[in-house]
Amino acid sequence: MQQKSRTIESNQTGPHERLEATVLKHLKADFKKPIADHTQRVFDEVNKLVSKHAGSVVFDSCCGVGDSTRLIARDHPDHLVIGIDKSASRVTRERLQVDPENMILRRADLNDFYRLMVTAGWQVEKHFVLYPNPWPKSAHLGRRWHGAPVFPYMLKLGGQFEMRSNWKLYLEEFQIALKLAGHVSELEGFEPEEYLTPFEKKYHESGQQVYRLITDIKPN
């Protein structure tokens, strides 16, 4: 029998008290952290493949072992689907299935990769962030995507953006951050017709409600 997933516990009962100030600070500032050499090399490789691709790009952030990337690539056969995760053990894990030809799976630091994408002028058609690490402690706001300095660069990629989580508060905070940046979004609970990630399957089968936030980010 599959072990049930525990619900997320947090010392927050609502949106973080410093959320607005943190988001506004990052929206007004440049993120000047040096780019890691490894991520630069991976980006250069992927960027060449993107340049050769005649169609649109779909980006799968925090893709883990790449299950979601494969399913998205299957459903978007004319698109180049790129999955990026920071864990080498996940993206290089041995797999029985054959990866679709229109899919790229690589290990890189998204804090750097997003900025390189923006500098190179990428615009994606769709961008998925599926079940990111919630960092539920109040002290860890800066580790959540909407509380991180790279948040504005995520938005500069444009496209149809979808984030999923089993912690509604995470998405509520992200929705507030989007509004501060001038974007309207929809947040809803839903029943997955097909599990895109192992986490989605685990949460849903444990009886937890899963949520998704969707917005259409227009290019600047």
Rank of each mutant, 00 (worst) to 15 (best):
D67T: 12
M1R: 12
K126R: 13
A148F: 04
V65L: 12
Y153F: 10
P100I: 12
F113G: 02
E191I: 14
P219D: 06
A54Y: 09
Y211C: 09
L27T: 09
H204P: 03
T39E: 04
P192C: 12
E94H: 11
N11V: 05
G189V: 09
G55W: 02
S10K: 01
W145K: 01
Q12W: 11
R95H: 11
A36M: 09
N102E: 10
P219Q: 06
P219S: 05
I217F: 04
L213W: 02
E188Q: 13
I8E: 01
V150N: 02
A139K: 15
D216H: 14
F113Q: 03
D44F: 03
G83P: 03
E193Q: 15
T39A: 05
W135G: 01
L141R: 00
F151T: 02
P219I: 10
T13F: 09
R144A: 01
E20K: 11
A54I: 12
T69L: 03
N133G: 06
D75V: 08
K137D: 09
R106D: 06
I82A: 03
N220K: 10
N133S: 13
W122K: 04
R164D: 02
G121C: 04
G147F: 00
A54C: 07
E125N: 07
N11M: 03
H127L: 12
N11L: 02
L155T: 05
A148H: 15
H183V: 15
T119A: 15
R106M: 05
T92I: 05
V46A: 00
Q12Y: 10
A29I: 03
R144N: 01
L80M: 08
T39H: 03
R212V: 10
C63Q: 01
K33Y: 10
P192V: 13
S5Y: 08
L187E: 04
G66M: 01
H183A: 05
L196P: 00
S56G: 10
R74G: 07
V50K: 03
K4F: 11
V124W: 00
G159I: 05
E191K: 15
Q208W: 09
S185V: 05
P219R: 05
H204D: 08
F190T: 10
V81D: 04
E200D: 11
T13C: 07
A139W: 01
S5E: 14
D112S: 09
N11P: 08
N220P: 15
S56M: 07
D75Y: 07
L157T: 07
P198F: 11
D60P: 05
A120F: 01
L80G: 03
G182H: 02
V98I: 15
D44Q: 13
P132V: 05
H53A: 05
H140G: 04
V50R: 07
H183W: 11
P15E: 11
Y153I: 06
T69E: 00
L155D: 02
P134T: 00
W145M: 13
P134G: 00
T119D: 14
F161Q: 06
P34F: 11
P34D: 12
F199S: 10
P219G: 04
T13A: 11
F113A: 04
H16A: 07
G55M: 06
L110K: 01
V129Q: 11
V42W: 00
H76F: 09
K48Y: 03
F174L: 13
Q3E: 14
E17S: 14
S10R: 02
F113Y: 13
H76K: 08
V98W: 03
L169E: 00
I84C: 04
D44V: 08
N220I: 11
N166D: 15
F151I: 06
D75F: 08
F128G: 01
P15W: 06
D78S: 13
